[in-house]
């Protein structure tokens, strides 16, 4: 009888549900997203978080009060603008808050402050200094598949005194009357096997539709560094190949790298623990980070002639 009693108690205990107490999920958080630079339109997107299982389309919150500061000095009140095509860059500009005439300068700290429904959401970042580069040793060759490959080296000097982070990507342009040298995606693949590249993002990336390489200076801190890049043609040969070297802030790098890690760990790395995406929004979620772009263009048709 006692054994029966013991077993009964044991199985009563095992019958307790295997569960974790789930608290109420608070999805009411503000989201602020902006990468701002010296070269591209300044836009801050705003929205709210949602439950992971909700089907949502995020919408900007249009009635927020936003202020931008430079080194703690008031720069101006942000205004909301709808999505539109930017003539200068031939680019779709998403809806969001902007400050007309804003031109961030290297070394300055920019802080944004939004107020809505009694809540204040802030974020800040330092604009990195521009890192220029040169293009050398251009060569047209073929790869194993006998595709035409345009090869060049880019060389830049990494500033000694600080940790620096970079994004390299390419765009193409056509001289035709419609495109008028505007940057476009497509036209050429970009490849590099340089060992300093930490993240390769080949398409539809967080930061660009184009192929991107993301790296830090931990392998070449304070020295002049050369990276060899291969470009292969997959549509009609563009007139211009534009190579962009972005000097990005640490917050930019952390956000992009952790976003990529989150995806990689979620989909590829079987044993890895989940990764949290870097977030620098106080009292909210998202990213507010700066980059400084250097661009050089190569006349491909001339190179091929």
């Amino acid at each position: 009888m006692r054994i029966t009693y013991i077993l009964l108690i044991l199985f009563t205990l095992t019958g307790l549900n295997s569960c974790v107490e789930e608290g109420e999920i608070n999805t009411d958080h503000y989201v602020i997203n902006s990468f701002f630079s010296n070269a591209h339109p300044f836009i801050i997107e705003t929205s709210k978080t949602a439950s992971i299982f909700d089907t949502v389309t995020y919408h900007n919150i249009k009635d927020m009060e936003g202020i931008l500061y430079e080194d703690d000095q008031f720069l101006g009140e942000l205004i909301f603008q709808e999505a539109h095509i930017n003539d200068e860059y031939y680019t779709y500009i998403p809806a969001g808050y902007t400050l007309p005439g804003f031109n961030p300068k290297g070394g300055k700290t920019y802080k944004v402050e939004f107020k809505h429904d009694g809540r204040t959401i802030t974020a800040s970042d330092i604009m990195p200094t521009k890192v220029d580069f040169t293009i050398s040793d251009t060569l047209t060759t073929t790869n194993n598949s006998q595709d035409k490959v345009f090869r060049c080296n880019i060389t830049f000097s990494d500033p000694k005194t600080e940790n620096n982070y970079y994004v390299i990507y390419r765009t193409t342009s056509y001289h035709g009357p419609e495109s008028n040298n505007k940057f476009m995606d497509g036209g050429m693949d970009m490849r590099s096997s340089d060992p300093s590249i930490e993240y390769i993002y080949n398409n539809k990336s967080i930061i660009s539709n184009t192929w991107c390489y993301i790296l830090s200076d931990k392998y070449f801190n304070g020295i002049e560094y050369t990276i060899s890049l291969d470009f292969s043609q997959y549509f009609s040969l563009p007139d211009l190949l534009n190579i962009h070297l972005q000097s990005v802030s640490k917050q930019y790098y952390d956000y992009v790298s952790s976003s990529l890690e989150q995806r990689k760990n979620n989909y590829e790395n079987f044993h890895a623990e989940a990764t949290s995406v870097y977030n620098n929004i106080e009292n909210g979620y998202g990213i507010f980070a700066a980059y400084n772009v250097s661009t050089h263009s190569i006349e491909l048709r001339k190179e091929n002639e």
């Binding site: 999920i25 608070n26 999805t27 958080h29 989201v31 997203n33 902006s34 990468f35 591209h40 836009i43 997107e45 929205s47 709210k48 978080t49 949602a50 439950s51 992971i52 995020y58 999505a83 860059y89 031939y90 680019t91 779709y92 500009i93 998403p94 969001g96 990507y169 765009t171 940057f183 476009m184 995606d185 539809k204 967080i206 930061i207 660009s208 539709n209 184009t210 962009h244 976003s259 989150q262 995806r263 989940a274 949290s276 995406v277 977030n279 979620y285 998202g286 990213i287 772009v293």
Partner: peptide, 25 residues
């Protein structure tokens, strides 16, 4: 992750991506 929010939509050219991933908090 129990909540999500949009990744940044600003590409440096060529606009809005239709396949944008969510960031998971």
């Amino acid at each position: 992750g129990v909540i999500k929010y949009p990744t940044i939509h600003q590409t440096i050219q060529l606009g809005n991506r239709s396949d944008s991933f969510d960031i998971i908090s």
